[in-house]
Design a protein around this nucleic acid. Structure first.
Length: 498
RNA sequence: GGCGCCAUCGUCUAUCGGUUAGGACAUCGCCCUUUCAAGGCGGAAAGACGGGUUCGAUUCCCGUUGGCGCUACCA
């Protein structure tokens, strides 16, 4: 097989996810195994949620994993640009082409009408699907409304009957009735394409031959196949990978578990171990085969036919075992200390740490106890440690619960942003910032007296902070759904300081 | 609610109609050992349920149940 080209297409809307690394790894392995190319494309068509910071982190994280791409936004390539927000003109052209052929149409329906329509369909036990109202508009009507500046979207025209067969490399032929396939929006009212249009156009233009993506895309595959046929293009081979799961079998989510690649890096997992672990979830070891293997071996032994279809649980104890083996079997003492040094942070982080710590220590030996929490995993906290003056236990729980949520929404992770969040929460609780911050010191640093909180949190990193707050909260009792809702409305109604 | 995917030890999985259902992590016991790890040896641990097909089903088919995903002008 030659000319193989695969891609991973993350959306820069948050912290790099281990699932992204998993999907990237499978695509990478297949391409490399067949002497092909692996492409990285940024799917940032959601202007509201995409951030440059997130894109940077994702590239960093994948690079840290040891996965290298042949073409991408940072390295360029013959089929660029590799950032969808920079390809708007291309999508517009193809969308127009579809509209002119009647394979897509302009839709002026209001959100309210669509909502009502869906509610009615659900009540009637019918599939949720655009009813085609705007399909009945005359060309003149459409022209008039566009001229009048009415906002509208472009939707994919989907047949009302017939069967769509999606051939999946592992699942075989999966059948969908067209009447259950929605007439998806292809171009939003802001002119940006949706994933559905952009990924099809890009995969074609970028000569992608195989698409290995998460299972969440299986049900929209018919729309994509329809687009390929409207354009007269040959679709790539499809394989829908299982979604990684939490130990409770639900889709791996950061609400329940650490999902960030950066979290595992911050905790001191080696990239080789993480990748090795994910590789085992894609292609399990055969009887008698050593499960410890480097990326070369992973690529060499990779078989698409062996990729599982059931969602595997991200089993941290197994990752721990692999990581331990790398530490003791693959690293010399020198190499280990070198890793530790690099893990502890570059000069920037260390200098900042020195600056903050210097005024607070009398002897060099005071340093380790003071900043040890920055280099630790889970803190050994007791419920009583979190008892503070001026705050009832329920208030502490509220503060933690709200902080976990609000901190996740912070676009940039720095002390200033964190400070805003904590102060806003203090206000919502009707407390002084100083009092409200106290339990956070304990949860984050393990002690009520420590280096400044906001800097500590920045230095610790978002993933570790989330994990510590979650642990502290669990110690006091994870809030019920009801509590969470009430508390969140409390925050929403509070005054927001500038 | 609708549509789709999935179903072997606690977890990841092997088995491609006939096996004492194999391996790995975790767990338990023993050995080694100044402690703790590591290491060695051993144990416990699985085919969701009900129908078919077949001489024979974990394996093929159907149903039930369960889990998961999608059901957005998010990806």
């Amino acid at each position: 097989m030659s000319g193989v080209r695969t891609r991973v297409a993350p959306s820069p809307t948050g912290d790099p996810h281990v699932g992204t690394a998993y999907v990237a790894l499978v695509n990478y392995c297949f391409a490399k195994k067949h002497g092909g190319e692996f492409i990285l494309r940024i799917e940032d068509t959601d202007a509201a949620r995409s951030t440059a910071e997130s894109e940077r982190l994702i590239l960093d994280a994948l690079r840290w994993c040891g996965i290298a791409w042949d073409e991408g936004p940072d390295v360029g390539g013959p089929h660029g640009p590799y950032r969808q927000s920079e390809r708007s003109e291309i999508y517009r052209r193809y969308a127009d082409e579809l509209v002119s052929r009647g394979q897509a149409f302009r839709c002026f329906c209001s959100e309210a009408r669509l909502h009502e329509m869906r509610a009615a369909q659900r009540a009637a036990a019918e599939p949720s699907r655009y009813d085609g109202l705007c399909l009945t508009l005359s060309p003149g009507d459409v022209q008039r409304r566009i001229s009048a500046g009415e906002p509208h979207v472009i939707r994919l025209r989907v047949p009302n009957e017939g069967l769509c067969v999606v051939s999946d490399l592992r699942r075989g032929d999966v059948e969908f009735e067209y009447r259950s396939v929605d007439m998806q929006v292809l171009v939003k009212s802001d002119g940006m394409p949706t994933y559905h249009l952009a990924n099809v156009v890009d995969d074609h233009l970028m000569r992608i031959t195989h698409v290995f993506r998460g299972e969440e895309w299986l049900s929209s595959a018919p729309k994509h196949l329809l687009l390929y046929s409207y354009f007269g293009w040959e679709p790539p081979k499809l394989l829908h990978l299982p979604l990684l799961r939490n130990p409770d079998k639900s889709k791996l989510s950061k609400r329940k578990n650490p999902t960030g690649i950066l979290f595992y890096r911050a905790l001191g997992y080696l990239p080789e171990a993480l990748i090795n672990f994910l590789a085992l979830l894609a292609n399990a070891a055969r009887d008698g085969e050593d499960e410890l293997m480097d990326l070369h071996a992973i690529v060499r032994r990779f078989e698409v036919e062996q990729v599982p279809v059931g969602g595997p649980i991200f089993d941290v104890p197994k990752l721990d075992w692999l990581n331990a083996r790398y530490i003791r079997e693959r690293l010399t003492p020198e190499a280990l200390m070198d890793r530790v040094a690099r893990w502890a942070g570059g000069p920037e982080r260390l200098n900042r740490l020195a600056e903050i710590s210097a005024p607070r220590i009398e002897r060099l030996s005071d340093l380790a106890p003071l900043v040890g929490f920055l280099f630790s995993g889970r803190l050994a906290l007791m419920r009583d440690d979190l008892r503070v003056a001026k705050l009832e236990e329920v208030e502490v729980r509220q503060a933690f619960a709200l902080a976990i949520r609000e901190l996740d929404a912070l676009p940039v992770w720095d002390a200033a942003g964190i400070e805003t969040v904590i102060k806003r929460i203090a206000e919502a609780l009707g407390k002084k910032a100083r009092d409200a911050a106290r339990p956070f010191y304990v949860a984050i640093t393990g002690s009520a007296t420590s280096i400044p909180l906001f800097d500590s949190m920045e230095l610790l990193g978002r993933d570790l902070v989330r994990e510590r707050l979650r642990n502290a909260l669990a110690l006091l009792g994870t809030p019920s759904k009801r509590e969470q809702e009430v508390w969140e409305s409390l925050l929403a109604s509070a005054q927001v300081p500038a």
